[in-house]
Design a protein around this nucleic acid. Structure first.
Lengths: 201, 201
DNA sequence: CGTCGAATTGATGTCATTCAACTACAGTGG
DNA sequence: CCACTGTAGTTGAATGACATCAATTCGACG
């Protein structure tokens, strides 16, 4: 049975952000695979080819790599209304080098490549929407690159809490440290100093 | 007068990499603006909106930012048959934060957004080609992110000479250092140690 | 020939890592 | 209900990687 999706995650998202009419969004949404994933579940592992773009309706996912040093490096966090995917892997059919993991119990939508192609044929504007996502992604990574090249651990942390204030409450600090490219101990000290600076004013 | 472009840079590139037939490539190529740029010329400055994607037929360009610390950070090098552009700026019409500069006397092709749209209508497959470029770009900067997050200066340098052996001979070391996110002095020492390791074998 | 920028080298400083100890707390099984 | 265990987070002391500052060499070019 089809459901009215006007208040549901991905359907609502399409209407608001992709300029897709409600009837169409409804149709799209009802043809997509949804899943509930419990905290801790791994949705993608290295050496697998990434087959889906995941859209997070509820909960929180992350992607990360395991460096040669044996350490995790968080690539991205994906809370509600975010996409998460290994784009290189889906696009080139390359084996992925990253994990995608649920760090909260989550409700997600699975979008595969065929689906996107079909949608593009039926729904004008989906291509453009997709294109905007790609460019947003690029802008995002590029900004992060600039920070890593030029900013101290403290600045990177401050930038993080500015960009993702909500994540601060939901993500363990050691993952944030990993995202910032520092150790948990260093992040702990950075935070300590920030508190001291504030109280010193 | 139209020229046969079969042996010329961008036309040849289109035939070989975008799956475009020679007649079409010829037509495309003859409608594009070309420029000779002397070493040192700046093609894009911060606060300008980037209007062109530059294709390098001959020579060498780079893009870089000026960090808050007042230091340059090289984003990308673009030798023959590479594109260089501030994608966020062209796509979103945002003022750029980067420079694009010729670091050798160069011969370039200027591709603007309108042109790409027109080509897409006429030439099937150009969209897909463009899409592949975008995904290549993402793969590229993602790899760089991983290196910055996980690898030492030495590893990053080794990776660089593996990926761009030719650039090593054409780019001043201080620019490579900037690309790697270290100081010229540090790069000098890294190189010294590598020589010593080799001779020590 | 003189000048300027690139590159190297040494001495020293700084930031972040490493390793280890310790606290707090949540989940588990007796 | 309590002891046991594991994970997150903090803190301290020592170390390490890279930066900074200053001096020198080298080569390109006017």
């Amino acid at each position: 049975m089809e459901t009215d999706i006007s208040e549901k995650g991905f359907g609502k998202y399409l209407i608001r952000n992709a300029g897709i009419r409600e009837a169409e969004a409804n149709n799209i949404y009802n043809n997509l695979e949804k899943r509930k994933v419990p905290k801790g579940e791994i949705l993608l592992k290295p050496h697998e080819v990434c087959r889906y773009t995941f859209f997070v309706e509820e909960g929180l996912l992350r992607s990360f790599t395991l460096g040669e040093d044996g350490k995790e490096h968080v690539i991205q966090f994906a809370p509600e209304n975010w996409f998460i995917v290994d784009r290189s892997s889906v696009y080139f059919n390359d084996p992925s080098e990253t994990f995608i993991e649920a760090i909260e119990d989550s409700q997600i939508v699975l979008i595969d490549g065929d689906f996107i192609e079909n949608i593009s044929k039926v729904t004008g504007g989906f291509d453009k929407f997709n294109d905007r996502l790609l460019h947003n992604h690029i802008r995002h990574i590029q900004k992060r690159l600039n920070l890593l090249l030029g900013a101290s651990a403290e600045k990177r942390y401050l930038n993080f809490i500015e960009m993702y204030p909500d994540l601060l409450l939901r993500v363990p600090l050691w993952m944030i440290a990993s995202y910032l490219g520092i150790t948990p101990e260093s992040l702990s000290r950075v935070r300590k100093e920030l508190v001291q600076k504030k109280s010193g004013k």
